[in-house]
Design a protein around this nucleic acid. Structure first.
Length: 482
DNA sequence: TGAAATGTTGGGGCG
DNA sequence: ACGCCCCAACATTTC
C-alpha cells in the first residue's frame, strides 16, 4: 500500500501523528509539501516567516533523506497539486494533520471530497494542539469564551485523558550512512519571491528539542518574573517552532509537567505559568475554529470603544512612525525595531506596542494584526488575531477597553536599567538610566552630554500619552451614549 | 497579563 | 502634652 503524507505545519519526525499512521498502514510512504502560490503572492507573511519555513523544510528533507525517504515538493494551487500528485504516484491513501484556520478547513474539505470520489482513503489527525475545540466544551456543549473556564476544563481533560506521545516509527529510527539516499533540492526563499534574512531563532526540529531542554533546565523555573523582562532571554522563544510544528506541543507539555515532580514548590507556579501560555495558545486556536469570523473582524460589537482615527495623512504619519519604531517612546520603539530586525518581539513588549497603536494612536487593531503577520516569523493567525483582539477589547475574553498601558511605567517596571532599549535603539545607548525611559525630558546640556539631540537623533513623543489616554476614554464614553 | 484617582492610616514635625 | 497638618504608604474605586 502506498500512502502520501501531506505536510503543512508539522515539519518534524517526532510525535507526528500523520507520519506515524502512514508508516503503520503503508509499506510505501511518500512525504509531500506544496508551496501555495496564492498564499505566497498574497504577502500575508514576510521574509522571516518564509525563511524559517524553508530552512525547516531543508532540515526535514535531510532528516528524511538520511532515513531513505525523499521529501517531494510541488508549487502552485495546493488543492490541484495535491490531487495531481496523488494521482501521479497512484497513492491508495493520504494522511495529514488538521489545520484549524478557516481557509485551511475549506481547502482540506475540498481535497478530502475530491480524493474520496476517486477512491483514495483520507486519514486526518489532531496534531497542532493538545485538545481540539470539540474536546473542551462547557456544560452546555458550547465553546468556552472565558479563558479561566477554558483552562479549568483543559486541566480536567488533561488529567482524565492525557494524550500519549507517539514513538518514532521503526522505519524512521535507523539512519542510513551510505549517502545514496535520494535528496531533492528545495526551492530557495528567493525562488518563492522572498528574501533570505538572518533569523534570531534557529529553525528545525533538532534546535526546537534543544531549546525546549535548555528552557526547562533553567528559565522556566523563574518564568513568572523572567518572562516580563525583555532584556533577558527568559522566554522559551518556541513560538515559531509551534507555528511550523518543528516541536509537538504535546511533547512540550509532557516535558513541562515532568519538571513539576522534580522542581521545588517555588518553581511550580513558574512551570504552570508557562503551561498557561500554551493553554492560551490552544484557547485562541479553539476560538478561531469555533468562531471563524474572528479572522476577519471583531468578535464582539465595538460598543464603548472609540472609533479608530479616520484615514488621512495624520493616520499615515502616525502608523509609519509606529511601524518603523520612531514614536518617541523608547520601549515602543525598541519593540518595533526588534520585530523589524529579527522577526520576533518579546511578549511583554507586544502588549505594550499593541496598546500604544490602538489606544494612544487610535489606529484600527487590524492594521497592527496585519503588520505583525508580515513581520513575525511565528506568524500564526489564531494566536496573533486572538492577542490583538484581546488588546483591542473586541475578543471573547479581552482586556477591558479602559485598560490602557502607560508606556513609561511599563518601561520603568520591566526594563529598569534600559538594557533592552539600548540594545534596539542605539541612539539612546549613552542616555543615562534615569532619563532612558523619557529622553525628551533631558535638558539641552544633558542631550549634549549623551550625544543625543531630541528631535534630531531621536524623535520627541509623537503623541502625549496622558492626553491621548483621556481622549480615548472620552471618545469611548461617547460611543456608549451614542 | 493596568493606571489614575480617591480614600485611609499612621508617623513625625511643629506650634 | 496635645492637636493639627503634611505626606508617604498602602488600600480601594473608578475609568
Amino acid at each position: 500500500m502506498r500512502g502520501v503524507v501531506w505536510l503543512r505545519r508539522d515539519l518534524r519526525l517526532q510525535d507526528q501523528p500523520a507520519l506515524t499512521a502512514a508508516f503503520a498502514d503503508c509499506d510505501d510512504v511518500i512525504p509531500l509539501f506544496v508551496f501555495d502560490d496564492s498564499l505566497l503572492r498574497a504577502r500575508q507573511f514576510g521574509s522571516p516567516c518564509v525563511t524559517f519555513m524553508v530552512t525547516c523544510l531543508a532540515e526535514l528533507t535531510g532528516a528524511l533523506a538520511a532515513r531513505g525517504l525523499a521529501l517531494q515538493w510541488r508549487r502552485g494551487n495546493q488543492i490541484e497539486e495535491v490531487l495531481r500528485f496523488v494521482a501521479d504516484v497512484k497513492a491508495d491513501a493520504v494522511y495529514w494533520n488538521r489545520d484549524y484556520e478557516p481557509g485551511a478547513i475549506e481547502r482540506d474539505r475540498k481535497v478530502q471530497q475530491a480524493l474520496m470520489t476517486r477512491g483514495v482513503v483520507v486519514h486526518t489527525f489532531k496534531d497542532h494542539v493538545v485538545f481540539e475545540a470539540e474536546e473542551i466544551r462547557g456544560s452546555t456543549g458550547d465553546p468556552l469564551q472565558r479563558y479561566s473556564a477554558y483552562r479549568a476544563r483543559w486541566w480536567t481533560k488533561w488529567h482524565a485523558a492525557t494524550p500519549p506521545l507517539l514513538s518514532l516509527p521503526v522505519r524512521l529510527r535507523a539512519q542510513r550512512a551510505d549517502g545514496s539516499s535520494p535528496r531533492i533540492a528545495l526551492p530557495t526563499v528567493e525562488d518563492l519571491g522572498y528574501q533570505t534574512v538572518p533569523l534570531s531563532i534557529t529553525p528545525g526540529e533538532k534546535e526546537a528539542q534543544r531549546r525546549l531542554r535548555w528552557f526547562l533546565d533553567g528559565p522556566i523555573h523563574t518564568y513568572v518574573e523572567g518572562r516580563n523582562l525583555p532584556a533577558i532571554d527568559g522566554t522559551s522563544k518556541l513560538s515559531p517552532h509551534f507555528r511550523f510544528g518543528t516541536l509537538s506541543v504535546r511533547t512540550a507539555v509532557h516535558a513541562a509537567v515532568g519538571t513539576l515532580a522534580t522542581g521545588g514548590r517555588r518553581s511550580r507556579r513558574d512551570v504552570l505559568a508557562w503551561i498557561d501560555e500554551l493553554i492560551w495558545r490552544e484557547f485562541f486556536q479553539q476560538v478561531l475554529s469555533s468562531f471563524p469570523q474572528v479572522a476577519s473582524g471583531p468578535f464582539r460589537s465595538k460598543d464603548g470603544l472609540p472609533r479608530p482615527r479616520p484615514a488621512g495623512s495624520e493616520l499615515n504619519r502616525l502608523y509609519a512612525a509606529w511601524c518603523e519604531g520612531r514614536t518617541g517612546y523608547p520601549l515602543v520603539d525598541a519593540g518595533m525595531r526588534q520585530l523589524n530586525r529579527t522577526g520576533w518581539m518579546h511578549n511583554r513588549v507586544r502588549m505594550v506596542v499593541a496598546s500604544f497603536l490602538i489606544k494612544d494612536l487610535r489606529i484600527d487593531w487590524q492594521s497592527g494584526e496585519r503588520y505583525f503577520m508580515r513581520q513575525l516569523m511565528d506568524a500564526d493567525l489564531a494566536a496573533n488575531n486572538g492577542n490583538w483582539q484581546w488588546a483591542a477589547a473586541t475578543g471573547t475574553d479581552s482586556m477591558p477597553g479602559y485598560r490602557i498601558f502607560n508606556p513609561l511605567l511599563q518601561s520603568r517596571k520591566f526594563d529598569p536599567e534600559g538594557a533592552y532599549i539600548r540594545q534596539w535603539v542605539p541612539e539612546l545607548a549613552t542616555v543615562p538610566t534615569d532619563r532612558i525611559h523619557a529622553p525628551h525630558l533631558m535638558t539641552c546640556e544633558e542631550q549634549a552630554l549623551a550625544g543625543c539631540r531630541i528631535g534630531t537623533d531621536y524623535p520627541s513623543p509623537i503623541v502625549d500619552h496622558r492626553q491621548a489616554r483621556e481622549e480615548y476614554l472620552a471618545l469611548g464614553k461617547q460611543e456608549v451614549t451614542a
